[in-house]
Structure formats: structure tokens, C-alpha cells
Design a protein around this nucleic acid. Structure first.
Length: 416
RNA sequence: GGAGAGAUGGCCGAGCGGUUAAAGGCGACGGAUUGUAAAUCCGUUCUCGUAUGAGUACGCAGGUUCGAAUCCUGCUCUCUCCA
């Protein structure tokens, strides 16, 4: 590996954030000569980002920590188009209201993870809708169009893969990369940005932006991508029992977020500690070396640190305490998913199957029946013997009823 | 504009008049094992019902037939080749 001068790139390199860089040495030189501004673009396709984007966000944190200025580009404009990268099908077009709503949701995460403001190294959020929406078609084509050849565009993975798979690629989506390239150039002008970072699937888009800027006399820009985040068993990272691992509390409670990290595969612990926590490297080396059941300690630290960053210290502590109570003592931690049931209902008695469905431990009655039949359903840690069990006020212990589906999914029922 | 091919359960993919709630795989879930890991093994996998069962389901709308995912007609969408 090349010996780097800048603190920022050194950290990125030793922690494993770098997949590809356009010109590592020149970039290193530039950063070590003085602070730079760098940006990452985020689509507003959902009300929250998920762990897949966390690697990128962590880079912005390091950027800020090392004295540079992070720019968060929200794709308010490009989300009206939809990025075809890595997709077999077109995205559903979204209305302006949905996009705005998503943008607001996503921003809460950045607000948690970065310092925003007007200072030199304060993060800044920009929205490409501000300049893309007002573009006029003909002038835009005349200005930008000559710098792109269809021949070249066809060679980019985002386009090529779709064509190779004989999946349709609309003209609308085909334009996405041009707009993203335009963004890079625009940000270089507006915010003196010199580096764009992103996931490895963004390489083509980033390179396009650099070339456009160069051809239009904008000077040298840089691009850097992170590796595709997969777990060591080859799956795409970021799935839990309930779907994607969202960064927002509203989409995924802190306890589940903590559990996601706690359940990391042994082989991924070191890598994840480097990428998703800010623990010093020697500490990580120590944790990573743990073997057998001891590596569980490293996983707990990983979960604590990751949850702390994203959800705050209190959330991390509560989640840890809940996990400890639930798994180590076999009890019921306070942070478990909870539903409220009226006292009248409980006094009258409620069927066990209905209660499980209400508690979210099964998506249909049939599923809960199966669960009971297979011996995976528990009421206050006692196996539910039959589908006809009725839960009533008498089952309340310590002011609550504990339901379990399998060993890992638990929920609390509280009377109200 | 012309000629072909196709659309099946969360996904991939068989089926091509009845024995098909639809093979097989993946995924997911439960159990065993264990360390809230991985790997492995066993089981489950549309909805409702205690159950005999009923209701939905093979792109959409009709039709033929005792009976259709399977045959016919129209429509929608996609792909390939030709102009």
C-alpha cells in the first residue's frame, strides 16, 4: 500500500473503507495541503436510510473529524428520476410530497451523526432539486449533451447490466447518470467540492462527473468508493427478521438495531468494528482476536458502539440492558417491543393466537398456529401447549405478560 | 409497422385439460446442536377454521368444457428478430 500523508485517507485505508480511488496520490497530496470539501449523494427513496448507507456516512464523520468539510447531497431532484444502478426494474416514480417527506426523515440521521452549521468544518446539506428542477431542456442539452456519447454510456455497468439482462431501461433512467455528473460539477462550483464518495455501484456515475467537469474546464476532481457491504457468508448486508436495518428509530427501534449488530457473524466482527465504530485500531485488534464464546463480548461492544453513534448513548444502554435481562437471565427487558391491551380485554380473556398476531410475533393466525404446533411459542417462558389457550389477567406477572416466538423474538403485553 | 417468444406463489423455476394449493431450488420461520455466531441435520412455508372443510391464487377481461394455470378470443406489459 502506498504511504499516505493525509490523516483522512490513512484512516480510511486502514479501516477498510476504500474500494477504488481515482488518483490516490494526487488526492492525498491535495488533502494534506489543506482542508477540502467532499460530498456523498443520497437518494430520497425511503423515509430512512439503512445500514447499507452507513459506511458512507461514517466516511463523512471521519472527514469532519479530520478537519474537512462534509457536504450531504440530498437527491431531491434525482429521486424524481430514479437511479438504475444495480436494479433490474425501474423504480416507481415518487411524488414531490413523498420525496420531501423522505428527505426530512433521512436528515434526522445525518443530524445525529454529523455536526451541521456554518463553521469551517461544519457539515452542510444541499438538495440537488435546487438546481436540477429549474434546468431548461434545450440549453441543458446544448451545454452538457456534447460531452456524453451514447457509446460510452452504454459501457457503464448501470446501463450495460440492464441491457444484458434484457430488462428495459427507460430514457428517463438513462438520464440519471448525466444529472448526477452535473451535480458533481455544480457542487464543485457552488461549494468548492473536490471529492465525491459513494458506494462501489456509484463508480461510473462519479467518474462521469469528474470527466464532465474536466471537459468543461472545471479542473481535477476526485472520486472514491467503498466496497460493497456483504456479510462474510456472501449475503447482502442489512437484513433482520423484520426486513431492512433502518437507521431511523421510527423505522427500526433501538433494541432491534442493537440486536442486529449483536448477531453479527464471527467472521465479520473485526471488519464491522473498523467500519462502524470509532474505537482505536489496537482495541479492535484485541477484540477481533477473541475466540469461541468470548467473541460475544466483542459483539456486544460492537452493538453498543454502533447503537450509540446512530441512536445515542441512552438508547444503546437500554438496549444492552434489555438484551442482558432477556438472554442472559431469561427475563424480560424493558426495551422489548410492547403492546398495550385494555384491562377489559384481559379480564375477559383473549385467545393466544390473536394475542401473538397483535404483538407482531406472527403475520397471520396460521403462522402462529404453526409456531405453537412446532413448540416455538412461549407464554411467560412456558411453552404454549395448545392453540386454545386463553390469556387472561391471571397471566400478568410483574405488571406484564411476556410472549416469545422462538428464542430470539420476544414481546411484552401490558394492561392499560 | 411486420414476425415470433413470454407473463406461475417473497424470488428463481417446473407444469401445458382432471390425481395441482401447483414439483424443485432459494429465501424465511420453528426445532436439534451451540456461543443470541457460522456450518450441519429435522420440520414448516396462501388465508380462514379445532377439524372433515371452505375461500382465494398461475398478467387482465371474457369464452369453450362436467372440469382450465393448462384450450379459444380480446386487452395490457415485456423480450427477440425484421423494416
Amino acid at each position: 500500500m502506498t504511504q499516505l500523508k493525509s490523516e483522512f485517507l490513512n484512516i480510511l485505508q486502514e479501516r477498510g473503507y476504500i474500494h477504488q480511488v481515482t488518483d490516490l496520490e494526487a488526492l492525498d497530496k491535495k488533502i494534506s495541503e489543506g482542508p477540502i470539501s467532499a460530498y456523498i449523494g443520497f437518494d430520497c427513496t425511503a423515509p430512512s436510510l439503512h445500514v447499507g448507507s452507513l459506511v458512507q456516512i461514517m466516511m463523512l464523520r471521519w472527514l469532519q473529524k479530520t478537519g474537512n468539510k462534509p457536504i450531504v447531497l440530498m437527491g431531491g431532484g434525482t429521486s424524481k428520476i430514479g437511479d438504475p444502478s444495480g436494479r433490474d426494474e425501474s423504480r416507481q416514480l415518487m411524488t414531490d410530497e413523498i420525496i420531501q417527506n423522505n428527505l426530512d426523515g433521512i436528515f434526522t440521521v445525518f443530524n445525529q451523526l454529523l455536526e451541521f452549521g456554518d463553521g469551517k468544518t461544519d457539515a452542510k446539506m444541499v438538495n440537488n432539486d435546487d438546481w436540477l428542477s429549474s434546468l431548461s431542456y434545450i440549453p441543458f442539452l446544448r451545454e452538457i449533451g456534447p460531452h456524453f456519447t451514447i457509446n460510452r454510456m452504454m459501457t457503464f455497468d448501470s446501463v450495460k447490466l440492464r441491457l444484458d439482462r434484457e430488462q428495459p431501461l427507460t430514457f428517463l433512467e438513462f438520464n440519471y447518470m448525466i444529472l448526477q455528473a452535473y451535480d458533481f460539477m455544480e457542487l464543485a462550483k457552488r461549494e468548492s467540492v473536490s471529492l465525491q464518495m459513494g458506494g462501489s455501484d456509484q463508480w461510473g456515475n462519479i467518474v462521469n462527473g469528474m470527466e464532465l467537469a474536466r471537459r468543461m474546464g472545471g479542473g481535477q476532481l476526485f472520486g472514491l468508493t467503498t466496497p460493497l457491504m456483504t456479510t462474510s457468508d456472501g449475503k447482502k448486508m442489512g437484513k433482520t427478521a423484520n426486513g431492512a436495518v433502518w437507521l431511523n428509530e421510527a423505522q427500526l427501534p433501538a433494541y432491534d438495531y442493537w440486536q442486529f449488530w449483536r448477531n453479527t457473524t464471527d467472521a465479520d466482527v473485526g471488519r464491522f468494528l473498523r467500519l462502524f465504530t470509532e474505537l482505536p485500531m489496537d482495541e479492535i485488534a484485541r477484540l477481533e482476536a477473541l475466540e469461541g464464546r468470548e467473541i460475544n463480548d466483542a459483539k456486544i461492544i460492537l452493538a453498543n458502539e454502533a447503537t450509540k453513534l446512530c441512536r445515542g448513548l441512552d438508547a444503546a444502554k437500554t438496549a444492552e440492558a434489555t438484551a442482558k435481562e432477556t438472554f442472559e437471565k431469561g427475563g424480560a427487558g424493558a426495551d422489548l417491543p410492547t403492546i398495550n391491551v385494555s384491562s377489559e380485554t384481559l379480564n375477559a380473556g383473549i385467545n393466544i393466537i390473536d394475542l401473538f398476531v397483535q404483538a407482531g410475533l406472527g403475520s397471520s393466525k396460521g403462522e402462529v398456529r404453526r409456531l405453537i404446533k412446532q413448540g416455538g411459542a412461549k407464554l411467560n417462558d412456558v411453552k404454549v401447549a395448545s392453540e386454545e389457550v386463553t390469556v387472561a389477567a391471571a397471566d400478568i406477572a410483574d405488571g406484564q405478560i411476556k410472549l416469545s416466538a422462538g428464542k430470539k423474538r420476544h414481546a411484552l403485553v401490558k394492561p392499560e
